[in-house]
Simulated scan of single mutants.
Amino acid sequence: MLLKLWCIAAGAFSTASALYNAIETGSQPDLNICPLRRHQTPPNNIEIRLPPTFQLPSQIDWEPTPPFWFLGTWYFAYSNSVVYQLFQNMQWTLYPTGTYGIDGTLQDLTSEFALNKTSFVFKNYGVDTPTVINGQPVPDSYTYIPTPPLTFANNTWEVIAWGYDSDGVPYAVVYETPADGGLVGPSLDIISRSDKGPSKPTLDAIYDGINDLHNEALSAVLKIVVKLTQNGGRNGELFPSCNATCQTNAYAFGVALGTGG
């Protein structure tokens, strides 16, 4: 019990103190040793749930990610998304809105190079609102709505697995529902705090765990997941931030507009 209480106190202190450091300095949240012990895969078995938007019974009781654990910058390592495959060195940065303490909303920023161009960083901005299904809030599930002119591309993203890989690096598996604009279907994304992605033993566990769910829709998406291009081209730079112009999604079309990010 004393260890558990210490873990809670230490985790709250370290994650809260790192909350803004990730945005301002590019540093990642501190490693919390207590979740590491329980959620490192391997040696522990992976825990994977069906996407809550499937509204099917899940085989496990879902343990939500620790407070603030998901904030900061992640690297997209694997995905079946044909849109994500058009880019390289894709990062995903989550940080609180001004009303985070009231409604749990997050600012959501993806940033990336085109495959053949590294002089311009595309930035796509939106706001994530915690998902509610049948009147009940769903942990680790968010409705994403980009600002105009990209509002047509809204969807829901939900964490279906999370933890630390066999090297101790945080990872997560995210399911994304089709964008309402109808441009892309569902996607399955494997993300990591390292641009190298999860370690091979952990990646194998992710694949085995999803297939063990015996869900045809999820297994079909998994079959077309590929490794995304992460070649270290943005290493050494501060993690991205989003100014007022960025929040209008002007930098999503910056090449055409002649602007930069």
Rank of each mutant, 00 (worst) to 15 (best):
P148L: 13
Q91A: 01
W157M: 07
T99W: 02
N134S: 15
Y84T: 10
N89Y: 02
D165S: 13
V159I: 15
L115Q: 09
S119I: 08
V127A: 02
W157T: 01
N154K: 13
N116Q: 06
Y125C: 07
P139I: 00
D103N: 15
D165I: 12
S141A: 13
D165T: 06
I102P: 03
Y175P: 04
D140T: 03
Y125R: 08
T143L: 01
S111A: 15
P139M: 07
D140P: 01
V173C: 10
T118S: 14
Y125A: 11
S111M: 12
I160L: 03
F152H: 06
P96Q: 09
Y171V: 09
F122P: 00
A114Y: 15
Y171H: 14
W162Q: 07
G98A: 13
T97R: 06
I160C: 07
T143F: 03
T99C: 04
W157N: 00
P137W: 04
G163S: 12
V127D: 01
Y100P: 11
V121S: 04
P96K: 08
G135Y: 04
G135R: 02
V138Y: 02
T151E: 08
N155R: 10
M90H: 10
I145M: 08
I145K: 11
T143C: 04
L106H: 03
K117Q: 11
A153T: 05
P146I: 07
T131W: 02
G163Y: 08
V169F: 03
D108K: 05
F122Q: 05
D103R: 04
G126L: 13
T97Y: 00
T105F: 00
P148Y: 10
V132Y: 12
E158I: 01
Y164G: 11
T129V: 07
P146Q: 06
Y100D: 09
T151A: 08
